[in-house]
Design a protein around this nucleic acid. Structure first.
Lengths: 225, 225
DNA sequence: AATAGATTTTACATGGATTTAACAAAAGAG
DNA sequence: CTCTTTTGTTAAATCCATGTAAAATCTATT
């Protein structure tokens, strides 16, 4: 969901229409007040923020957004009619992710939105890909080479941890804590056993899970030796 | 380190100068060839890429960068004289992180660079560096001159101690206590043996571990004597 | 309660990692 | 220079983390 805060209804509607026509969900707001109210209910994945607004202006809103832990991770693209360099600098240094000057083409806007989303959603994707392994978190579906692989719950959770932490080594303790919930007294080979079945079920993609002796397991794209 | 690929030497030098005056390291390249060569040697944290270049143009370079696993994570800002919307779309959809149109102010450029770095550096993990030895704690990975070095657990822990305590002498007892856990009765040559394999595996970087007779070992960047 | 499937535990083999042991080489002390 | 101490080096001995199979236990579904 993309929020567009813009007082000019023509532009606002055009933007919302354009974004929706490319398959994204979008919602327009006339001023900061309506916008902040909606924000309490829902967390959009990106915000288009006009600088010139009635009431609180865009820079103040930006400041508020970046001050709150709940909203500071939401990427923001500033929009303005004034094209001076000074405005751009203020907007970007204030924590905005990009800056667009009116009049702007809709194609450019869509591209910038996509670029910023690509940059930010990298960390928390619903669908992750590693090599030829695809993982759809929401659907709980895994494919290797477009061939579906059936995983049990624990296997899936384990794989999810690996995929979310590519190339970094996960200790058994860390995995037990994340997947099984905190404590779990010393000796158990549970993780190892699940890693084994994972490797087995994933076939060729299973080789991406490497064991780091004495530490834990790590997953990453293969490299020759 | 920021790379700037730009054929116009005036602009290139101005950009490099400006970035350096804000405390960042920067390096300019006249064409794609020189740039790609440098890239094999070092991984910059951001790339400024002109679209119009002699030889391979910026878009081709961008495509190459995004195709290789080693470089696809490096953020790229496209730069061009042509301001058409079409160019912007192509650049951004090609995987660039931002787009700047000439003529641009240096303040704006710096802001955009900072904004993109702010976005991308969030995901990075702590890497310690000494000379041309790099140590990534989370990945449990060590490289010398960008060449990976395979270390066992104890070797890694030992190296970690050295790197975390650069230039200060670590006694054998101190190391045994830190890595092996407190007590450990008197005589053992364990540390020495591991220091040996470390020096061996690290190759040239191994020379940074010097022995302080009668006391222990110390690691620091080399200096003539 | 019975069944099937998932998950965990147990047990053991294996091979790489670590340590020990033994000796060589180097550095200081007198 | 000789003796002593400390460190370097090598190879063998030991240890112990991991892979693996199979049994035991747990969970949900009928």
């Amino acid at each position: 969901m993309i929020y567009c805060v813009e007082d000019d209804s023509n532009i606002r509607e055009l933007v919302v229409y354009t974004l929706e026509s490319t398959g994204m969900k979008a919602c327009g707001f006339e001023d900061g007040k309506a916008f902040m109210e909606a924000l309490a209910f829902e967390t959009p994945s990106l915000i288009l923020l006009d600088i010139m607004l009635p009431g609180e202006d865009g820079l103040e809103l930006l400041h508020k957004l970046k001050a709150s832990a709940k909203t500071k991770e939401i990427p923001v693209i500033m929009v303005t009619a004034k094209g001076g360099e000074y405005d751009k600098v203020i907007g970007l240094d204030g924590g905005a992710d990009d800056y667009v000057t009116k009049p702007f083409g809709m194609m450019e806007l869509v591209s910038r939105v996509k670029a910023v989303l690509r940059r930010t959603e990298k960390t928390k994707d619903p669908i992750v890909q590693v090599g030829d392994l695809k993982l759809d978190i929401k659907k709980h579906e895994v494919t290797v080479h477009h061939t579906p692989v059936l995983l049990t719950l624990k296997e899936f959770e384990l794989l999810e941890q690996f995929v979310r932490n590519q190339n970094i080594v996960l200790t058994r303790d860390r995995l037990l804590e994340k997947i099984w919930g905190y404590d779990f007294d010393g000796e158990t080979r549970t993780v190892d056993v699940h890693v084994r079945t994972l490797r087995q079920k994933l076939g060729s993609a299973g080789e991406m899970i490497e064991t780091v002796r004495g530490v834990g397991y790590r997953m990453g794209e293969k490299h020759e030796s």
